[in-house]
């Protein structure tokens, strides 16, 4: 579904953020990307839907080459859902309108169909009664669940999560992770940048460990948690799992 091959990215000629990154995510697979901050994991995931350009290598999503100048990027992005660290709901729109905007403007759905779809998804994330509120009236965890529903409203073929729980208070993390676990179990293709190793243990098929722009480890979940092959991954795991 998502094939990343030999991707290099520089911010300036001196600073390389991604170094020869190669991996892939098969249909229905859940891949967790972890690593210390500044390791390039968010950058990598943003290259998948071309929010960040890259200079070398190829990324293909469902057969469409992301870095081909002829690719209709808005059309491609509409099929790949993305959830951000800071939710990024549109503050001037009601919750239901947040869910309808792209359905109507990008997919051309009729308003009542978009609303029906939106309400269905809000019910699914347990926020149906908040449909007429504005984002600032919801808690962080609720906003992030709305953001997931907003991405799902586009009927995505894959979902990208960029540290979806990092900006949340601890007691709100589980409500967001629960939604993501359900999604994973339903067979959604997911690429998740996160430090939530409990989530990785529960639903990930593979875990990718990145450090300084490189994919250091790319292993099935059990191998990764059982015995990481690289020193750097071991050190990282011991730091985040020790308490």
């Amino acid at each position: 579904m998502i094939e990343i091959s030999h991707v290099d990215k520089w911010y300036s000629t001196a600073f390389q953020v991604l170094k020869d990154c190669t991996t892939n995510v098969a249909k229905g697979e859940v891949v967790v990307v972890c690593g210390p901050s500044g390791s390039g994991k968010s950058t990598l995931i943003k290259c998948v839907n071309a929010l960040e350009p890259f200079q070398k290598g190829d990324i293909t999503v469902d057969g469409t080459k992301v870095n081909d100048p002829r690719t209709d990027l808005p059309k491609l992005r509409a099929r790949v859902g993305m959830v951000f660290q800071h939710f990024e709901l549109f503050p001037h729109l009601k919750i239901i309108d947040n869910l309808c905007l792209a359905q109507e403007k990008v997919l051309g759905r009729a308003h009542d169909k978009a609303v029906t779809k939106g309400m269905m998804l809000l019910e699914r994330v347990g926020l149906k009664e908040h449909a007429q509120k504005f984002p600032a009236q919801l808690s962080g965890g609720q906003q992030q669940r709305v953001a997931i529903a907003r991405a799902l409203a586009m009927d995505p073929i894959a979902m990208l999560f960029d540290e979806p729980t990092s900006a949340l208070d601890p007691e709100m993390i589980s409500e967001v992770l629960d939604v993501m676990v359900d999604l994973a179990r339903e067979g959604m293709t997911m690429m998740v940048v996160t430090h939530e190793m409990g989530f990785a243990r529960k639903v990930a098929n593979r875990v990718i460990f990145m450090d300084r722009g490189e994919i250091v480890e790319d292993a099935p979940k059990d191998d990764f948690f059982g015995k990481p092959r690289s020193d750097r991954a071991q050190k990282f795991l011991s730091k985040i799992l020790s308490h």
């Binding site: 929010l51 808005p74 509409a78 990024e88 792209a102 990008v106 997919l107």
Partner: peptide, 18 residues
């Protein structure tokens, strides 16, 4: 505005004008 607002709009498939 937070940089993520533009990214969120782009990620949803909205064009620059939209």
């Amino acid at each position: 505005l937070p940089r993520g607002q533009r990214q969120a709009a782009t990620a949803l498939g909205l064009t620059t004008v939209q």
